Amino acid sequence: GGIAIFFALGCTLIAFVTFVVPADGVPLVDLTQLFADMRRAPGDYIWLMVTLFSTLIPTLLNLSVAVLTLGLQYPAGVRNFVADLLERGEHSGQAALLSGICICAMITIALWCPIWIFTFVITHDHGAIVNAVLWGFEAFAWAIGGI
Score class of each variant (00 low, 15 high):
H91Q: 15
H91G: 10
H91S: 12
S92N: 04
S92L: 01
S92C: 05
S92A: 03
S92R: 02
G93I: 09
G93F: 00
G93W: 05
Q94T: 10
Q94G: 11
A95N: 06
A95C: 02
A96Y: 03
A96F: 06
A96H: 11
A96V: 01
A96E: 07
L97K: 13
L97N: 08
L98F: 09
L98D: 05
L98N: 07
L98E: 14
S99A: 14
S99P: 01
S99D: 06
S99F: 09
G100L: 00
G100E: 00
G100Y: 01
G100F: 02
I101R: 13
I101N: 01
C102Y: 10
I103E: 04
I103D: 04
I103P: 00
C104E: 15
C104D: 15
C104I: 13
C104F: 15
C104Y: 11
A105P: 00
A105T: 09
M106Y: 01
M106P: 01
M106E: 04
I107Q: 08
I107C: 05
I107S: 00
T108K: 11
I109N: 04
A110F: 04
A110P: 04
A110H: 02
A110Q: 08
L111H: 06
L111V: 12
W112F: 15
W112T: 14
W112I: 13
W112A: 15
W112Q: 15
C113P: 05
C113F: 15
P114M: 05
P114L: 00
P114R: 01
P114E: 01
P114K: 09
I115K: 11
W116R: 11
W116G: 08
W116I: 09
I117M: 03
I117W: 08
I117A: 10
I117R: 07
F118G: 04
F118A: 12
F118D: 10
T119Q: 12
T119H: 11
T119M: 12
T119D: 15
F120Y: 14
V121R: 03
V121K: 06
V121N: 07
V121H: 05
I122S: 05
I122K: 06
I122H: 07
T123Q: 13
H124K: 06
H124A: 03
H124P: 08
H126M: 11
G127D: 03
G127F: 00
G127N: 02
G127H: 03
A128N: 10
I129Y: 02
I129R: 05
I129N: 08
V130W: 08
V130Y: 08
V130A: 14
N131F: 00
A132K: 07
A132L: 12
A132I: 08
A132Q: 07
V133E: 15
V133W: 05
V133F: 02
V133Y: 03
V133L: 05
L134P: 05
L134N: 03
L134D: 03
L134K: 02
L134A: 02
L134T: 07
L134W: 01
W135L: 13
W135P: 05
W135R: 13
